Amino acid sequence: MPDVGSDLMPEITNPHDRFFKEVFARKEVAADFLRNYLPADVLACVDENSINLTKDSFVDNELATHFSDLLYEVDLHDGSGAYVYVLFEHKSFPDSEVAFQLLRYMVRIWEQACRQRQLKKLPPIIPVVLYHGIVNWKISRKFSGMFEHPRALAPFVPDFSYLVCDLTRYSNDDIRGMVLLKVTMLLFKYIMSEELRGQLPEIFKLLKDLSDKESGMEYLQTVLIYLSKSTDKINRENIKEALKIAFPSEGGEIMPTIAEEWIQEGFERGMQQGMQQGMQQGMQQGMLQTARNNVLDILEARFETIPQSIFKRLKEINDPDILKMLLKKALRLSSMDEFRKTMNIILE
């Protein structure tokens, strides 16, 4: 297999991105993920213990806020090689164009592989989307799902399938793997949910077997900093209380005092980012209003009258990605009623 990686990881600023890459860069975690989340027939082709992380990212810069990615090389049992490409989508709703994004990234991987080694055949790529939003993944898992065409044209439409690990559909018991992987997946599942506070003690309890090991303490530090920086569903006291329940000690004190230092470190980093974000907030509000107005202008130009219900719903949307999606729908859909139904589905 050609080495498609560079020597340095790009700078990571998004807390979800940083946590994902810190954990999934561990070979044992990546191999455990393949064992537990690849379909059985796919896993049967792969030597998961041969997994090797490359150092490249293929996500477009403008999408880096909402997507992270890691590329692994693996050996196949037939003696050939393949890639496993994991795209981590940390958005509150699924992106309807993810298959198109995956195609672009896969082509870049093949192009880079061909530049670095003369290949008679292209290595297969197994694309996996890891999703932890707040609504279920309902988008087609085939690239051909992006097309509408007469049946006679089907042979001319490119196609591939991708796997989706949709954590919104997993119960806690469904989330499998060794402790590091299971804790990570549970945190991803609940990080955007109001249930996080109640789930946190049980998640921390899973770490008890690792708490007296150096690697376990390093991972706990990573978890605490991630929690401190990535969610508004809990506060510092919630984290400390969850630690107290999971790691009781004499006198009822929270486990190692150093844990408090890690929490503080996370919140201080979060506060610095918050100050920077606060300076941009006014600008962002203006951009959101412009995005809403753009959708309304298109609807008015195409359909003349806009129902008050649509005005009201658009005013309540504060996610620029949803507004961008609705702008595309406003340009393409054939009636106001079709736009309203589509908007309701997106906002469910």
Rank of each mutant, 00 (worst) to 15 (best):
M1P: 10
P2R: 01
S6Q: 14
L8W: 14
I12D: 15
D17L: 14
R18L: 13
R18W: 10
K27A: 04
A31M: 01
A31H: 01
L34N: 01
R35D: 09
L38F: 06
P39A: 03
P39Y: 02
P39T: 03
D41L: 10
V42Y: 10
V46M: 02
S50D: 01
S50P: 01
L53C: 06
L53W: 06
L53E: 07
D56V: 15
L63I: 10
T65Q: 14
F67T: 03
L70N: 06
L70S: 08
Y72S: 02
V74Q: 00
G81M: 13
V86A: 05
S92A: 15
F93L: 15
P94L: 06
S96W: 10
S96C: 14
E97P: 12
Y105M: 12
M106H: 09
V107P: 11
E111K: 12
C114Y: 15
R115K: 15
Q116K: 15
L130N: 04
W137Q: 02
K138L: 11
I139M: 08
S140T: 09
K142T: 12
K142P: 08
F143C: 04
M146Q: 15
R151V: 10
L153I: 13
L153Q: 13
P155K: 04
V157W: 06
P158M: 04
D159G: 04
D166P: 03
Y170C: 09
V179K: 07
L180K: 11
L181W: 04
K182P: 06
K182W: 06
T184S: 11
T184G: 04
L186N: 04
Y190K: 05
E194M: 12
E194R: 12
E194D: 15
G198V: 08
G198Q: 12
Q199I: 05
L200P: 01
L200S: 01
E202Q: 12
K205F: 02
L210M: 09
L210P: 03
D212C: 11
Y219S: 00
I225M: 03
L227E: 00
L227T: 00
T231C: 01
N238A: 05
I239R: 00
E241W: 03
K244F: 02
F247Q: 02
F247D: 01
F247T: 01
S249E: 15
S249F: 08
E250L: 14
G251V: 01
G251N: 03
G251A: 02
G252Q: 01
E253H: 09
E253W: 09
I258G: 05
I263P: 00
E265F: 03
G266Y: 00
F267P: 04
M275K: 13
Q276W: 11
Q277A: 12
Q289N: 09
N294C: 07
L296P: 05
D297R: 13
E304H: 10
P307T: 01
I310R: 05
F311K: 14
R313P: 09
K315G: 08
D319H: 05
P320N: 04
K324G: 12
K324C: 11
K324M: 15
L327D: 10
K328D: 13
A330G: 08
L333W: 08
M336K: 10
R340K: 13
M343E: 05
I346P: 08
